[in-house]
Nucleic acid binder design. Structure first.
Length: 421
RNA sequence: GGAAGGGUCGCAUAGUGGUCGAGUGCACCGGUCUUGAAAACCGGAACCCAGUUUUACUGGGUCGCGAGUUCGAACCUCGCCCCUUCCGCCA
């Protein structure tokens, strides 16, 4: 959500942002409603002020004077009621429109509409050259009895899977290694509710607009989260934090659920695109300062890179173009990790900064050093997501005989096992 | 799921229709006093919206949320949410 004052003063900037992000929102209508609202507000507040003054007098009055003023009060109340009704309608419409207004993308974002327009920021490591014909993670997983998608689909439909045996242990090892890495850097781990109310989905910017991507438990009006970001960023909603307690560095771990609507027929083989996965997510809540936000962005991007480097997986970092950015994002980088079976880099991480977009929706504030109350800035980045990360791990570490070496840093998390056979 | 009790400015509480413009205690911030601290005393302090002459002032709103009764609601009525205790069920 943007500050209404900002929209009033910069309508063209807002319209341009909506165009770049391909979001349909009638800014002129919004400003017209805003104007109407303020006019009505003035009228109803004048009436309320008169009523308040009269209320003080009434107990002191008697007889005719009193009858007269009571009559006047009745009239005022009737007028007030109809104005309030009108105001309520306009306010509802205004708030609805406001929820669609996008955050202004940073100047640094490459313009464009799809992956072709991403800008390469950096690459790390070299795609591996095998001296044998490498297998893909599915073939390896079936051979080593680590993955069973056939039965996953049998009981849960397409894009579902079982992990088994070393598959389970490998996933848990990666998650625990990542959580430990973050804990050492002062991140507080969170295990979160995966079913949340609408306000958390709206607060983090997923609703309205993302309803088709979320599983919905209608009976209880709850939604399955697609990322622990939703719960962790909402953790301090409606609170006023203190500047000296910022930044908050949080690490959420949770199962994540995505309907993958509109991706029919895309990435159907293997563990790349599935309905349920596990993720360790970094969430930052910091003071409202652009330089501080940038610093935090670099920090959480660096943390994710550090995990990939520890796993010795080649990757690259790309800047996402405006047309592919979310409504609330100011700037976004993806990390793509080399996946031999795809013969390309595949998205494994997504790092976003929001400035105060989410904080405004969540009513998440802090008192600054001068004692002024301000909206916080928020950011988040994947630290690791499984099973997608299992694709490069299994494929990069495979041997000619179909066994898989366990990355060195994960061995302590696998009871010292060095090789999956 | 059933029964009872409860939700007031950080915490604890007072408040049963107008003087609540929400009192008191603790905690907090500033000051006086003190070598310093404590104590004592004095003062201050929430949040949201609108407007203006914009480091300030004025008006409006906020006692879990929403509606109703009334000239007027923290207070009365109804609905909802949440918490506590007991019973039932249960990983």
């Amino acid at each position: 959500m943007l500050d209404l004052k900002f929209i009033r003063e910069n309508p063209d900037v807002v319209k341009r942002a909506a165009e770049l992000k391909k979001i349909k929102v009638d800014v002129d209508k919004l400003l017209e409603l805003d104007k109407q609202k303020r006019e009505l507000l003035k009228q109803t507040e004048d009436i309320k002020a008169e009523k308040n003054r009269a209320s003080e007098q009434i107990p002191k009055l008697h007889g005719e004077n009193k009858e007269e003023i009571l009559k006047r009060m009745k009239e005022l109340t009737a007028k007030e009621k109809s104005l309030d009704e009108e105001l309520k309608q306009i306010d509802e419409e205004l708030n609805h429109l406001l929820l669609w207004v996008p955050q202004i993308p940073s100047e640094k974002c490459p313009p464009g509409n799809d992956e072709k327009d991403y800008k390469l920021i950096k690459t790390w490591g070299e795609p591996k050259k095998f001296d044998f014909e490498p297998l893909d993670h599915m073939t390896l997983g079936e051979k080593l009895d680590m993955i069973d998608t056939e039965r996953g689909v049998k009981i849960a439909g397409s894009r579902n899977y079982f992990l088994k045996n070393a598959g389970v242990r490998l996933e848990m090892a990666i998650l625990m290694f990542t959580l430990d890495t973050l804990a050492k850097k002062g991140f507080t781990p969170f295990s979160v509710p995966v079913l949340v109310e609408d306000k958390a989905m709206i607060g983090t910017g997923y609703f309205p607009g993302g309803e088709e991507q979320a599983y919905r438990i209608d009976k209880d009006k709850l939604n399955l989260i697609g990322t622990s970001e939703v719960a962790v960023t909402s953790y301090h909603a409606d609170e006023i934090l203190t500047e000296k307690d910022l930044p908050k560095k949080y690490a959420g771990i949770s199962p994540c659920f995505r309907r993958e609507a509109g991706t029919y027929g895309k990435d159907t083989r293997g563990l790349y695109r599935v309905h349920q996965f596990q993720k360790v997510e970094q969430v930052i809540i910091c003071k409202a300062d652009v330089a501080e936000s940038q610093k935090m962005f670099d920090l959480i991007l660096g943390n994710a890179e550090e995990v990939l480097q520890a796993l010795e997986l080649p990757y690259r970092v790309v800047a996402i173009c405006t047309g592919e950015m979310g409504q609330g994002q100011v700037y976004k980088n993806d990390i793509e990790t080399w996946m031999p079976s795809r013969k390309s880099y595949g998205e494994t991480h997504s790092c976003s900064m929001f400035y105060d977009f989410q904080a405004r929706r969540l009513n998440l504030r802090y008192k600054d050093a001068q004692g002024k109350t301000q909206f916080c800035h928020t950011l988040n980045n994947t630290c690791v997501a499984s099973p997608r990360i299992l694709i490069p791990v299994m494929e990069m570490y495979q041997n000619a005989d179909g066994t898989i070496n366990v990355p060195k840093v994960l061995q302590p998390y696998m009871n010292g096992v060095k090789k999956i056979i």
